[in-house]
C-alpha cells in the first residue's frame, strides 16, 4: 500500500499548493500523484471498484492540472503591464 499512500500524499500536497496559489508546484504534484495512482492501478492488485474510483480521481486531478498549465502558459506570454 506504499505507492497508494504516496499517491494520496502527493495529491493532498497538490491541493494545498493549489489553494495557496502556488500553481507551478501544484501542477507538478498533481502530475506526480496521477503517475503513482496509475502505477497502483496497473501493478498493484485492487478490486474493480477501487480501480475505477482511483481512475475517477486521476481524471479530476488531470483536469485541474490542465487548467493550471493553461493558466501558467497564458501568464508567461502576457507582457507585464507597465508601471
Amino acid at each position: 500500500n506504499n505507492n497508494l499512500q504516496k499517491a494520496i500524499d502527493l495529491a493532498s500536497k497538490a491541493a494545498q499548493e493549489d489553494k495557496a496559489k502556488n500553481y507551478e508546484e501544484a501542477l507538478r504534484l498533481y502530475q506526480h500523484a496521477v503517475q503513482y495512482f496509475l502505477h497502483v492501478i496497473k501493478y498493484e492488485a485492487q478490486g474493480d471498484k477501487a480501480k475505477q474510483s482511483i481512475r475517477a480521481k486521476c481524471a479530476e486531478y488531470l483536469d485541474r492540472a490542465e487548467k493550471l498549465k493553461e493558466y501558467l502558459k497564458k501568464k508567461e506570454t502576457t507582457p507585464a503591464k507597465p508601471v
Binding site: 496521477v34 496509475l38 496497473k42 475505477q52 481512475r55 486521476c58 481524471a59 479530476e60 492540472a65 490542465e66
Partner: peptide, 21 residues
C-alpha cells in the same frame, strides 16, 4: 461523465500531454 468512464490509456495519454510543453 468522463471521470466515470476514463480508462488507463486515457489517463496515460493525458499525463503524457501534460508532460510535454
Amino acid at each position: 461523465t468522463k471521470a466515470d468512464t476514463i480508462s488507463d490509456e486515457d489517463i496515460e495519454r493525458q499525463l503524457k500531454a501534460l508532460g510535454m510543453d
